[in-house]
């Protein structure tokens, strides 16, 4: 595992230097950014087992915070991104406190509505967000001392550093007592509550962290791309992120990153398939769930090293009445 992580890090560090041109460098940077968002979704879905469909909403909140602070108030990227993370986290905390009282299907439907409300507000609040026109001319990251961020390579490394920090943070989270509680909630919420774990606190923390990471990814996205439209927060964005997590392996720390690279990379490189992209993605999502519910991480992981994520909890639950766990 340690060698694997070292090798992955080495590849990640070298990658921005060896990509053939600026176009691929841009894709690589985007992949790092979306991987951060996928790691965020993985915290609430993979660790705590709650399907949140509001994820792109928080990505949008982070992105629009950076964009609007920069274009309307002259706030720099460096101050805007933390502000975006903070706003996403605060809204995530409030929304999570309310939504997480609903369980299972209700939680998924509730968060889908929340994501839609965020997206509709961004679309319709034209005096603030310029609606469908979007925000243009968002300044990128300025220089810190001698380090400049105009070049694609520098931005790519900036995204990579953020991704690395995200991975360290989520790994530590998973190994901490509260991370263990999240996994316990995923495996069986009634059981976790019965042995005295604070189920709600763990779920709320998972949701807040997930929103904060989406906000970070959104902020980076806005600064790097330079323009921003409401589609950055729409439900399709949530689906894409969900696919990244599912392909890589739900619940595994590095799985979502691998999933992002494979899915996002393929979708960008195989431009010929542009029209059929969502046809393939939709089908892939269904087939994955049916035949490979643990994603690539499930294929490569040696058996019995980790508690298996969703499949096993289901067999536990299948014994009890389906109506009971609502």
């Amino acid at each position: 595992m340690k060698y694997g992580a070292g090798a992955a890090l080495a590849i990640a560090v070298v990658l921005p230097l060896v990509v053939p041109n600026a176009y691929y460098l841009e894709i690589l940077t985007q992949a790092y950014v979306f991987a951060i968002s996928a790691c965020g979704l993985n915290v609430i879905l993979g660790f705590a087992g709650q399907l949140s469909l509001a994820h792109a909403g928080f990505f949008g909140i982070g992105a629009y915070t950076v964009a609007l602070l920069a274009t309307k108030a002259g706030v720099t990227f460096w101050a805007g991104v933390p502000a975006g993370i903070a706003l996403s986290a605060v809204i995530g905390f409030v929304v999570g406190s309310i939504c997480l009282r609903s369980k299972g299907h209700y939680f998924a439907i509730f968060t889908m509505a929340v994501g839609l409300i965020i997206n509709l507000i961004i679309q319709k609040w034209e005096s603030l967000t310029h609606g469908h026109v979007g925000v243009i001319g968002i300044p990128g990251p300025g220089a810190i001392g001698p380090i400049h961020f105009e070049s694609g390579i520098a931005r790519s490394y900036l995204a990579l550093v953020c991704l690395a920090l995200t991975l360290v943070a989520t790994t530590r989270l998973l190994r901490s007592p509260v991370g263990r509680t999240m996994v316990a909630v995923r495996e069986s919420e009634p059981l976790a509550a019965a042995i005295g774990l604070d189920v709600m606190a763990a779920k709320r923390l998972a949701f807040t962290i997930s929103a904060a990471l989406a906000g970070l990814a959104g902020g980076l996205y806005a600064g790097f791309i330079g323009f921003l439209g409401p589609e950055s927060s729409n439900i399709e964005m949530t689906f894409n992120t969900l696919l990244y997590v599912m392909v890589g392996g739900i619940g595994s720390v590095v799985g979502p990153v691998a999933g992002t690279f494979i899915v996002y990379g393929l979708s960008q490189v195989l431009q010929v398939l542009q029209h059929y992209q969502m046809v393939i993605f939709g089908l892939a999502l269904v087939l994955l769930i049916l035949f490979m519910p643990k994603g690539l991480a499930g294929v490569f992981r040696r058996p019995s090293t980790q508690p298996t994520p969703l499949a096993e909890s289901a067999s536990l639950r299948a014994g009890s009445s389906k109506k009971g766990d609502k």
């Binding site: 087992g49 939709g282 499949a311």
Partner: peptide, 22 residues
């Protein structure tokens, strides 16, 4: 998917939705 975790069926439904629209 009936005996799997409910999350799996929901994700599958989302996949079907993407597929039909595309």
């Amino acid at each position: 998917l009936r005996n799997d975790s409910p999350v799996n069926a929901m994700i599958a439904a989302l996949g079907v939705m993407l597929f039909l629209e595309a």
